[in-house]
Design a protein around this nucleic acid. Structure first.
Lengths: 144, 144
DNA sequence: CATAAATAGGATAAAATTATCCGAAATAAG
DNA sequence: CTTATTTCGGATAATTTTATCCTATTTATG
């Protein structure tokens, strides 16, 4: 469904959010350990998230990655996915047709509509906040 | 969402079905032209579909690929997808956790459930027949 | 039986994704 | 100002996916 990069990105954001609540910045090393991902690759993904203004980075000593405490509730999964995988998950045709729309639909166009709309709705209505809170409370897990 | 291989596989099955209704076998060359896919790669995918008993092949002169006319209505999208992409689309965790279930869910486990159930339901309830009929009637398209 | 027409399948190549490494640039603190 | 720390970003490698090529095998037909 998502690329590996996107999976890492989502998990990384959650871990960063948890730490930002405690005013702690985290490094790619810590993140990679916590979400069980390759460190250098994770760092690249973090860069993309920074460039797309999903998270912030502070260079130098005592630096690291963080996200504004009061923005966490407004950051949606869709922003993270879009920053990493782009928006083909929204716009792309299920069967890869260049031009696929109501007037010229691929064979699964209508069938797919429901699934994609549900996915889109989920991504746009799931906040980083709720995901982070569930991790904090031990209701869900970032690895194994 | 699906791999390229799977996209080609679905479109190929539809084209084969349409021709099987007319008792015509088709070659990878014809198929590739009709669904706008690389021929040799498409041939590989057809082999996988044959191995998984989704379609049938007949070697030698006047051979080609076909699907039993009276089976077309019972062949579901799910069979095609499973034959090519395997069943990780059903069982895999949305964030790639090795072990992700109700007792040990990933952060998006519940959120994802709806989307995946909808996808699964769609795949299991969409028959090759209806897809083929829509192509025949010009209601949907296999390329461009 | 010989021949032509097809699929099967192995070997290989190209492209995309995933992953690693290292030096440059920035920054906090002494 | 210097140093230690940390992200940034380019180069490169490994893996997976996508794609191509060529030969073997099968089979209908004359």
């Amino acid at each position: 469904m998502f690329s590996k990069a996107c999976e890492y990105g989502i998990k990384a954001c959650i871990f960063i959010a948890i730490n930002s609540y405690e005013d702690r910045r985290v490094s790619p090393k810590e993140i990679a350990e916590e979400i069980n991902s390759p460190q250098a690759f994770t760092a690249k993904i973090l860069q993309a998230l920074v460039r797309n203004n999903v998270i912030k980075s502070v260079k130098g000593a005592y630096g690291g990655f963080e996200v504004s405490k009061n923005e966490i509730q407004y950051i949606k999964l869709s922003q993270i996915v879009k920053a990493i995988d782009g928006d083909n998950i929204y716009n792309g045709c299920g069967l890869g047709l260049e031009k696929c729309n109501e007037d010229h639909p691929c064979p699964v166009h209508d069938k797919f509509k429901g699934v994609r709309d549900e996915l889109k709705h989920m991504l746009e209505n799931t906040s980083l906040e709720e995901l982070a809170l569930n991790i904090k409370s031990g209701t869900s897990f970032l690895k194994t």
